[in-house]
Amino acid sequence: MRIVTIGIGVALTVAGAGAAHADTFSPDYAQVANGAGVSQNQVLTPAYSPIQLPDVTVRNQPDATTIVAHPFIAPWVHQLIPVAPGSAVELRGAARVRIPGAAALAGAYDSNPADSNRSLVINPNGHCVFAGPDTDPAALTSTALTPVRVDTPLFDLVIEPTLYH
Score class of each variant (00 low, 15 high):
I73H: 14
A30S: 07
A64C: 05
I99M: 10
G126Y: 04
V68Q: 15
T146C: 14
D136C: 09
A114N: 15
P133V: 05
R98I: 08
H127E: 00
D23T: 04
V43C: 06
A30Q: 12
R149K: 06
N125M: 02
L105K: 00
T13K: 15
A102N: 02
V129M: 04
A94Y: 00
G7P: 06
P137E: 10
T45K: 10
D134Y: 05
V150D: 10
H21S: 10
A20S: 13
T65P: 06
T141W: 06
G132I: 08
A138H: 06
L53D: 09
A94T: 14
L105F: 06
S39M: 15
I122D: 11
A64M: 12
Q31L: 09
P54D: 12
Q31E: 05
S49M: 15
A104N: 01
P161C: 00
Q52Y: 01
A64R: 15
V68Y: 03
P147G: 04
P75Y: 06
F72P: 00
D151W: 06
T66M: 11
F25R: 02
V10G: 10
V43W: 01
A22E: 01
I122K: 00
I8R: 03
G93K: 02
A47T: 11
P54G: 12
N123P: 01
T65N: 11
G126R: 12
M1D: 09
D55C: 07
Q31K: 04
L53V: 07
R149Y: 10
P153D: 03
G93P: 14
V32K: 05
I3F: 03
G35T: 05
T13Q: 07
T146Y: 11
P46Q: 14
G16D: 13
A30D: 06
Q61V: 15
G86L: 03
Q42A: 08
P133I: 15
V129Q: 02
T5P: 08
I73P: 05
V150Y: 12
P46M: 08
P161D: 00
A69L: 11
N123I: 13
P62Y: 07
S119W: 08
T13P: 10
G126M: 07
